[in-house]
């Protein structure tokens, strides 16, 4: 998902405190920033929320790519608004993460040094306008699958950020789907572009949920802590079930010859994505890893003089006010 492969950190805390903490979570209580929490819970959450925040920020890049080339002024405004939302989502999540005792600048450093990851999906290129449709429909659709249950996550600031994000996310998916509708109903060339976008984004979207984790100890711990609500397979199945009829409505073909309706499970059977590709992309060997991280680092470094300038101005103003008050 936007946070993939989150291993859970071990806690070396007092077993009695740990049991009391778990009991609170089991009762459905929310954990708040200043309250006691196991070191493992705190560290795992920093990794998860941080990775989620980084994904929102890096996720602006593949779509930002098309702002200047949107086909109409209205589409340009919509895309701008969507990309601006992603920036907002990143900021809500960085704030939530900071309540765990790490600063935003430290999180940026860890992203830029490669110590922290962002979602694999943003390492794929957006080659045509139809990709803006596919990204909104599939990528934001997959994100919603994951984020809706996270509104009930045990950590208060994270849950509240999710509520805010989910409210805004539905617009993202719908604007993407309407792009796909327009393209699919257009000229044969436009429909072919829409099909091509679906072909390229289908498996990377399935990868967003991460490999099967139903037997993973990390997953079990994270689920006990309620910082993970569903297994990766559950969410992926839900996503496929919802998306296949939407693709059929568009008159497009899901690029999977094994796609068949399974009456027993009331869901679709489908092919697994190529997990070796997923691990390669996570390791840094995706088509756009260098470009994305390079753009992030450049934006941060090029903005340094400006951030420092505003700080210097604020300090000067504060000193002036102080001197004025002393007179």
């Amino acid at each position: 998902m936007y946070a993939q492969m989150i291993t859970s950190e071990k806690s070396s805390d007092d077993p009695e405190l740990l049991a009391a903490f778990q009991a609170r979570i089991d009762r459905g209580e929310r954990i708040e920033p200043k309250e006691w929490m196991p070191e493992g819970y705190r560290k795992t959450l920093i990794r998860q929320i941080g990775q989620h925040a980084h994904s929102e920020i890096v996720g602006q890049l593949p779509e930002g790519n098309w702002i200047t080339r949107a086909p109409t002024l209205e589409r340009k405004q919509i895309l701008l608004a969507k990309v601006q939302d992603e920036a907002g989502h990143g900021l809500y999540l960085y704030s939530a993460c900071e309540t765990l005792g790490i600063s935003r600048d430290e999180l940026f450093d860890r992203l830029h040094s490669g110590a922290m990851k962002y979602s694999s999906i943003f390492n794929y290129p957006t080659l045509t306008w139809a990709d803006m449709g596919a990204v909104g429909w599939l990528v934001d659709g997959a994100a919603i699958m994951n984020q809706v249950p996270l509104q009930r996550t045990s950590y208060g600031p994270y849950a509240r950020a999710m509520v805010r994000i989910c409210k805004e996310e539905s617009f993202h998916q719908r604007q993407g789907y309407t792009i796909m509708m327009k393209m699919a109903q257009g000229t044969p060339e436009q429909k072919a572009m829409a099909q091509d976008a679906l072909n390229r984004f289908w498996y990377p979207s399935l990868m967003m949920f991460g490999p099967s984790d139903k037997d993973s100890v990390h997953s079990a711990q994270n689920m006990a802590w309620k910082i993970k609500i569903n297994t990766n397979d559950e969410l992926r199945q839900r996503f496929v079930n919802e998306t296949v009829p939407q693709a059929r409505y568009l008159g497009l073909e899901v690029p999977d010859e094994n796609l068949t309706w399974n009456e027993d499970k009331q869901g679709w059977d489908f092919s697994e994505p190529d997990w070796s590709e997923f691990f390669a992309v996570l390791k840094g060997d995706g088509p756009c890893n260098e470009e994305r991280l390079g753009a992030r680092r450049k934006a941060w470094d090029d903005g340094e003089w400006f951030r420092d300038g505003l700080t210097a101005y604020a300090e000067k103003q504060a000193a002036r006010r102080k001197a004025h008050a002393a007179e």
């Binding site: 900021l91 809500y92 704030s95 509240r160 805010r164 505003l310 101005y313 604020a314 103003q317 504060a318």
Partner: peptide, 10 residues
């Protein structure tokens, strides 16, 4: 929620 800014106006 919260956010970072150099001064109150920003």
């Amino acid at each position: 929620g919260s956010l970072h800014a150099p001064d109150a106006e920003m």
